[in-house]
Design a protein around this nucleic acid. Structure first.
Lengths: 220, 220
DNA sequence: AGGCGCTTGTGAACACCGGCACAAAGTCGC
DNA sequence: GCGACTTTGTGCCGGTGTTCACAAGCGCCT
C-alpha cells in the first residue's frame, strides 16, 4: 500500500501548520497550468522565506530538482499524502447557531477535501429540519457513528462545549476544532485546536495600540 | 491619565496571544464574585502552566501579592489596558456571504468589547438591506470613515480579498482579520491575522493520521 | 564531454520560548 | 513582634524554530 519507503521523520508542528498553505498555493498553480516552481516563487506566493520553505519541504523528503525547482503536481501529492488527505475525512458540526449555520453552508470545506456529513443540535425544534440540504440530528445520533476519520467542529455556546467534547471523545473522536470561547479539557491522544474570533481581534488591538505608542515616541 | 509609569517592556508575541485568554477567565471569575486568585488556579482555568502564567504576567509589571495571589479586578484592568481595550474599538465586516452574515450576527464581539459598526458588500442587491439590524453599505462608503481604532474583517471570496485589503489600507486601517483562504500582501505597519478553517482541519487530519500510524507500530 | 549557472538541501549560529526550581517577599497566627 | 507558611517573580537551561550562507547536485549550452 505504501508507495514510498516512508521517511518517518518527525515533522515539527510549525512546519505542519504551513503545509496546508503550500498545498493551497500549489493547487492554484496547478490550475493555472504551472508545472514547475522554484522555492523562491513558492515562498513568495505563500508569504514565507524561501530558506524556511526549503527546510519545511526537506522534512517530507527530497522532492525538488536542483537547478530546476519542484514539480508542482508531485509536490502537491506528497503534501496531501503527508497531511492524511488521501483517505476520506468527514466533518460533524455541533451547534446550529449563527456560526454553525454559516459553517454548514460554507463551501470551503468541500473544495479542500472535507465532507460535512453531520449537522448536530440538541434543540428539538431544530433536530429534523434541513440546513444546507442536510438533516440536523441529535448528539446521541452522532455518538452512534463510526469515529474513524471524523473531525468534530464545536460551535455551541461555551457552557455546553465541554459536554459535547466529553461525549464525542467517549465515542472515539480524536480531533476537535473548537469555536466556543472556553478551554476544553480532553484526555491525551485527543487533539484540540481552537479558533476564538474575539481573541484574534484583541491581539490586533494590542498591535495597533503598540504601533500608535511607537509613533507617539518619535512624534510627541 | 496614565495610572502607571508605563513599564514599556517588550511583550513577546506568545504572551500577547495568551493575554486575551487570561482576560476572559478573569472576567468570568469576577462575575462569580471571586476577588483574589492564585497563579495556580488561574493557570488551571486558562489551560497553561502556572510558571508560564507568572512569567506572562511579569511582563505587565508586578501586580501580584506574594503569599496571596492576584487581585482579579485589578489584573483584568491591567490586561485590558495593555491590550488597548480602554479605548473604543470598532469592527467592519466586509463580504456578506455565509460567513460574513454569521459574523454580523455573532454576539461574541460585543460581549468582548468590540462594536460591529459597519457591514460592507459590493453587491448592489445587498447594499442598503438590513442584516442583524444594521444597514449594509458599499466599500466606498467605508473608506470615507475614520480608520482610527478600526479593525477590518475580510470575509469575501479569496479573489476579492486583496482588493479589499488594498482599499482599507489606503484609507489608513492598520489591523485586518482575514478569513479568505489566500495570502494578503500589505505594507509594513499593517497587521494581518488570518483564520483559515480548512487549514485547521488539515492540521487536525495530520495529527489524527500520525496517531493512527503510531498505533499501528505497536499493534500491527 | 565538460564547464557554467542555477537551485536545492542542510550545517551552524542565533533567537525565542517553556519549564524547573528557588530566593524574595508578603500574610497569618500566636 | 516574630516565626512559619504561602505564593510570586525570575535565573537558568534544554528544546524548538528561524535565518544565513554555502556546498552539492542537476540541466543546459557549447
Amino acid at each position: 500500500m505504501s508507495t514510498a519507503p516512508a521517511p518517518r521523520r518527525e515533522i515539527p508542528d510549525a512546519t505542519v501548520a504551513r503545509l496546508p498553505v503550500y498545498l493551497r498555493v500549489l493547487r492554484t498553480l496547478l490550475a493555472d497550468g504551472v508545472d514547475v516552481v522554484s522555492s523562491e516563487e513558492l515562498a513568495e506566493a505563500a508569504g514565507v522565506r524561501s530558506a524556511g520553505l526549503r527546510r519545511d519541504l526537506s522534512y517530507l523528503g527530497s522532492y525538488g530538482v536542483r537547478g530546476v525547482g519542484y514539480d508542482v503536481a508531485r509536490l502537491a501529492d506528497e503534501i496531501a499524502r503527508e497531511l492524511g488527505l488521501t483517505q476520506d475525512r468527514f466533518v460533524a458540526i455541533v451547534g446550529m447557531g449563527n456560526l454553525g449555520h454559516a459553517l454548514a453552508a460554507y463551501s470551503g470545506f468541500a473544495t479542500r477535501g472535507f465532507e460535512v456529513r453531520w449537522l448536530v443540535d440538541n434543540d428539538p425544534a431544530i433536530v429534523g429540519t434541513q440546513i444546507a440540504e442536510r438533516c440536523v440530528v441529535a448528539l446521541e445520533e452522532l455518538t452512534r457513528q463510526d469515529p474513524d476519520g471524523l473531525i468534530v467542529v464545536i460551535a455551541t455556546p461555551p457552557a455546553q462545549a465541554q459536554d459535547v467534547a466529553d461525549a464525542v471523545v467517549a465515542m472515539g473522536v480524536r480531533s476537535i476544532l473548537n469555536f466556543a470561547p472556553c478551554v476544553l479539557t480532553v484526555p491525551d491522544g485527543v487533539e484540540v485546536r481552537k479558533v476564538d474570533l474575539a481573541t484574534e481581534l484583541q491581539i490586533l488591538a494590542f498591535h495597533e495600540q503598540r504601533g500608535r505608542d511607537d509613533l507617539r515616541e518619535v512624534n510627541p
